[in-house]
Design a protein around this nucleic acid. Structure first.
Length: 667
RNA sequence: GCGUCUGUAGCUCAGUGGAUAGAGCAUCUGCCUUCUAAGCAGAGGGUCACAAGUUCGAGUCUUGUCAGACGCGCCA
């Protein structure tokens, strides 16, 4: 309908004003009494050099002269020209399209383009948590939205199965595990996670011991001012070491080099008794810098951490025993992950494993060297040249021993992915803490000549925190994905039983799962990706109001209605749809394809969640009106109303499917 | 210190330079003998952090201030 009107107005304007407009803006007025569509005339005022109010009047008079029969009324209201469409035509047009296309309504034909969406990408040392749920759901939903817009979507998961994190779990499992294996009650990812936590506990113990022996309050590295004020106190301590060479915070930061701090630290150590040691100016150092420094000190002195480091080295050397344990634990975790994905209803087209890709990328760096994009420092390390202002300077790509860093491996993986699929676009669904990493990565890919580098996009999402603050896996302040899914589904079952409807056991199980999952998915996807939201367990599990179950319930209601009355929707008299709530629904239904488009342009699922809620809400209002008791209507009237219900049903189902939510027929 | 992002109702969040800034929750008032009450109808609740600027028009764009989150490592 909208297209018909846009074409009509465009032709009219181009003809009468001798223009060549092809991107006409047509809006839907907020106030329904204004009409079905609005033409904001601001868009022409610059070209025509007239005020929008006058243009609006001009166009109105032109249209009045040769008005099409599908337009009932054209009214100008200030700068807006409002159109009232012939409702019978409008309804008929829409019903034909929806009932022909059904589940394909709102889906575009293939555009021959493909897009890769990488999401989830967990570390294989612990079960997935709420943060993973967000990337899982977001990645899957964005894939669906791409598909609806005519793309071929390739869902990819890059498993971080290599590194110190998994070695930590391996050390603890070997030390304390007694060969424990996953069981019915303990999924593989939970089991490995258990040992990872055990490792952290052990490391914490060693850290505390170390810290208790070393008084970290007595040594200061100060900026000049503070140094002056504490001089007396420090006279017999650090001061002696620093002597005239005062070391300041900015010195250290400039070098971005904790090694430098450690060197000083060691110097202090050599010259003073153990008791007096220690670095730290509690005020002038940022908290994280302090922690990082202490962590490194602890690392040097912690047995169990050393063991993990040694294990990583052995893994890299290909030590048979280590590899075997690694394979075993990894396979357990991945098996556990697959169950999580299954319960979320998510599938991947391709898994990449970091253990297989972490060495890639070197050859692209070599090419960069040849092209002069990269350069080698005296110590043998390789760097890429990047503008200081925009990227904060050059970036290391190969260590002096020739090994890859995170960036290098991501470069390699990006090229590999392109070789495998030759996709037009590539989306990375990764948390916003990696904004800088991806900004740099995409620039490097461009410099190194990856074909689709300009079509790479980091879909950055905000961190989820709990009402009591940020989630911390080390402190057990965490919401596990499996637990949350299960909890939602149990709650759904309770709610169903509460209502006393008649379901057999199988139905009960299926519907609980569908509704619980629907609640979770809708809850997470209603936020814009960027938003860092606070996860409130109480609100998330509420099934009333703007929630997944409300939408599913609306769908089930319509299904019951259609099934109970069971009338063939043929030869419908659309003149009979003439109430305000009929029109309101019509307007919403018409918008659906444009919403799907908008969601893609902004990579934002909240346009979809917002839209379905509005549609369902409008329908429930329609449904509850006393004069709208469809059952009691005359046959023709009933048929027309059911046709409207049918359209709503299809669109609720289609739009929910974009979010990965199923629409049950009963609940 | 430098960089990125965020600041909208009591809480949690939507909001494409455009018409009177919205929703859910919470609070209060009504509505089930009826096609599913997981529902509907209604009320109250706002200095869109603050200040200036851009223009026909700013919650939306620019700059500054304040507050918060994240990032800035030869970790991934």
């Amino acid at each position: 309908m909208r297209d018909i009107l846009i074409n009509y107005i465009t032709d009219l304007i181009n003809k009468n004003y001798s223009l060549n407009i092809n991107n006409l803006i047509l809006e839907v007025p907020e106030n329904i009494s204004f009409g079905d569509f609005a033409l904001p005339c601001f868009q022409f005022s610059k070209i025509l050099k007239k005020s929008p109010n006058i243009i609006s009047l001009d166009i109105k008079s032109i249209i009045d002269n040769e008005k099409k029969d599908f337009i009932d009324e054209v009214n100008n209201l200030g700068p807006y020209l409002n159109f009232k469409i012939n409702k019978e035509f409008f309804f008929k047009n829409l019903f034909e399209e929806i009932s022909n296309k059904k589940e394909n309504y709102g889906r575009k034909k293939s555009n021959g383009k493909s897009v890769m969406i990488e999401f989830s990408s967990p570390n294989t040392n612990k079960p997935q948590h709420l943060g993973h749920i967000r990337t899982n759901l977001l990645g899957d939903s964005i894939s669906n939205i791409f598909e609806a817009n005519g793309y071929k979507a390739i869902r990819v998961n890059l498993l971080n199965d290599r590194g110190i994190h998994i070695c930590k779990a391996m050390v603890a499992w070997l030390k304390f595990g007694n060969g424990e294996e996953p069981s019915e009650n303990l999924k593989g990812d939970y089991l490995v996670g258990k040992y990872y936590v055990l490792f952290e506990k052990e490391a914490k113990k060693e850290k505390d011991e170390f810290l208790s022996k070393h008084l970290y309050e007595n040594i200061f590295i100060l900026d000049a001012k503070k140094f002056e004020s504490k001089k007396n106190y420090l006279k017999n301590k650090a001061y002696a070491i620093f002597g005239k060479n005062e070391v300041t915070k900015s010195d250290c930061l400039k070098r971005k080099d904790f090694k430098y701090l450690h060197d000083i630290f060691n110097k202090v150590k050599e010259n003073f008794s153990e008791k007096d040691l220690i670095l730290i100016d509690l005020n002038s150092f940022e908290k994280y810098e302090k922690e990082k420094f202490i962590d490194e000190e602890v690392m040097e002195n912690s047995k169990i951490l050393q063991e993990a480091r040694e294990m990583l080295a052995k893994w890299e050397e290909g030590d048979k025993e280590v590899i075997e344990v690694w394979k075993k634990l990894n396979s357990w975790v991945i098996e556990g992950f697959n169950k999580t994905y299954e319960s979320l209803g998510i599938k991947f087209d391709k898994y990449y494993y970091e253990s297989e890709t972490y060495k890639l990328g070197k050859k692209y760096v070599e090419e960069g060297l040849k092209k002069g994009i990269c350069y080698k420092k005296d110590d043998g390390s390789v760097w890429i040249k990047l503008p200081e202002k925009e990227f904060g300077g050059d970036k290391l790509l190969l260590r002096k021993d020739g090994t890859s860093v995170y960036m290098t491996q991501d470069i390699g993986t990006s090229f590999l992915k392109y070789q495998d699929f030759k996709m037009d676009k590539s989306i990375y669904v990764v948390g916003s803490e990696q904004d800088y990493h991806f900004k740099v990565l995409f620039k490097i890919l461009e410099l190194l000549g990856l074909e689709n580098a300009k079509e790479c996009y980091h879909l950055s999402y905000g961190m989820i925190s709990l009402p009591e603050g940020r989630m911390k896996s080390r402190e057990g302040k965490i919401v596990e994905a499996d637990d949350l899914i299960k909890e939602m589904q149990e709650k759904a079952k309770e709610e169903i039983l509460l209502r006393g409807r008649e379901f057999n056991n199988e139905e009960l199980e299926n519907i609980s799962k569908t509704v619980g999952l629907g609640a979770l998915k809708y809850y997470i996807l209603q936020f814009s990706p960027r938003t860092e939201f606070i996860f409130d367990p109480k609100a998330s599990i509420d099934f009333n109001g703007k929630t997944g179950p409300y939408l599913q319930y609306t769908h089930a209601r319509i299904c019951t209605l259609l099934n109970t009355l069971n009338i063939e929707l043929k030869d419908i008299d659309f003149k009979l749809l003439n109430t305000e709530s009929d029109y309101k629904l019509l307007r919403l239904l018409e918008q659906y394809p444009y919403i799907v488009e908008k969601a893609l342009l902004q990579y934002n699922t909240s346009y979809i969640t917002e839209y379905i809620y509005n549609l369902a809400s409008e329908f429930n209002s329609f449904y509850s009106k006393n004069d709208n008791r469809i059952k009691e209507m005359e046959y023709e009237q009933k048929k027309a109303k059911l046709a409207l219900c049918y359209m709503v049903k299809i669109i609720i189902k289609n739009s929910l499917s974009l979010l990965g939510i199923q629409a049950p027929e009963k609940m």
